[in-house]
């Protein structure tokens, strides 16, 4: 199998997730080439062909132009599989390439067997297998699903360029907002999810956090609804935490939330749904109504 891996740069640096592309390539086997819109200053060790585009010329986000350049690499490599990370760069570019080639795309792959790719669905509650019916295919792999692997060797660098016009103008990055709460340092984090029902109930969860002597965290819908500010958000677009104890109150356990807390020492989840995917990572899943169980636990602790 011939693979074309698509790595990512942010502000001139190759992102660490690229190592997961190498991990995936090693797991599935085959000849890998890599395509990068980045900088010659920071290319990975690699023992295959490396199609390099100077991000200084075209920008790190410029989807129409990146697509055309990637299609040039596809023409040279003639890959069976084009592999992206399922990230804001990957899910934006992958469908463009799949549409141009009119080939199957499988999104957010977590495993594979024969010609089928395993993916999550229904907010990670269920899994299914997706089989491309085209001879080539595009996939995006879930961040964290495959082990990061440092590759070795000296790549054979081929520089690509194009005169295709941009259809979007990249104006620049906005840095992450300063965090007013440092969850990463806390030994205990007690987080509120949408299951708490309404803003006022944040206090119920805050009381438990206090009783434990821990910090208050939250899932994204709680932040989006304005129940608490973004500094408390745990997950791929919030903070990553690994406390000794993480308590998830009314949190379903989406991939993006798990990305921010699954390395916690001990995970206690309270959910009325026995099937909630948080059960996959929880050491203890208490099947109960948070608004009944949490106050009772708080009372016992205080």
């Amino acid at each position: 199998m011939k693979l074309l891996l698509v790595g990512e740069y942010r502000e001139g640096r190759l992102l660490d997730t690229s190592a997961e592309l190498f991990g995936f390539a090693a797991a599935i086997g085959g000849d890998a080439s890599i395509f990068l819109v980045g900088s010659a200053e920071d290319v990975p060790a690699f023992s295959g062909a490396l199609y390099l585009v100077d991000a200084g010329l075209y920008g790190e986000y410029n989807p129409e132009v990146h697509k055309q350049l990637l299609l040039k690499a596809v023409e040279e490599v003639n890959p069976d599989l084009i592999v992206f990370i399922h990230s804001s760069y990957g899910w934006d570019l992958a469908p463009r390439v799949a549409a141009s080639l009119k080939v199957a795309q499988v999104s957010e792959v977590i495993g594979f067997a024969d010609n089928a790719y395993e993916v999550g669905c229904c907010n990670a509650k269920m899994h299914r297998n997706v089989t491309p019916s085209t001879s080539k295919a595009v996939i995006t792999i879930q961040a964290g699903a495959f082990p990061a692997l440092q590759s070795e060797g000296t790549p054979l660098v081929k520089v690509l360029s194009t005169d295709v016009a941009s259809t979007t103008e990249f104006l620049g990055y906005e840095p992450a907002e300063a965090k007013d709460v440092n969850l990463a340092k806390a030994e205990i984090v007690v987080s509120a999810g949408r299951g708490i029902g309404k803003k006022e109930n944040i206090e119920v969860i805050r009381s438990l956090a206090k009783a434990f002597g821990g910090e208050l965290g939250a899932s994204r819908p709680v932040v989006d609804a304005g129940w608490i500010d973004h500094g408390h958000q745990v997950g791929s677009t919030g903070q990553t935490v690994a406390p000794k104890l993480y308590v998830a109150c009314g949190i379903s356990g989406s991939i993006q939330h798990l990305a921010g807390m699954k390395k916690s020492g001990f995970i206690l989840a309270i959910n009325k749904d026995k099937d909630a995917p948080i059960g996959e990572v929880a050491d203890v899943l208490v099947v109960a109504d948070v608004l009944q169980f949490v106050p009772a636990l708080t009372a016992k602790l205080s």
Binding site: K274, P277, V281
Partner: peptide, 25 residues
């Protein structure tokens, strides 16, 4: 279609977690 779908299922339980049910107390 460009893809086919199969084996829609609950994910295999990986963790060794326990599930507790009963009265709140």
């Amino acid at each position: 279609p460009l893809t086919g779908s199969s084996s829609f299922r609950h994910p295999e339980k990986k963790g060794s977690g326990v599930v507790l049910e009963g009265s709140v107390d």
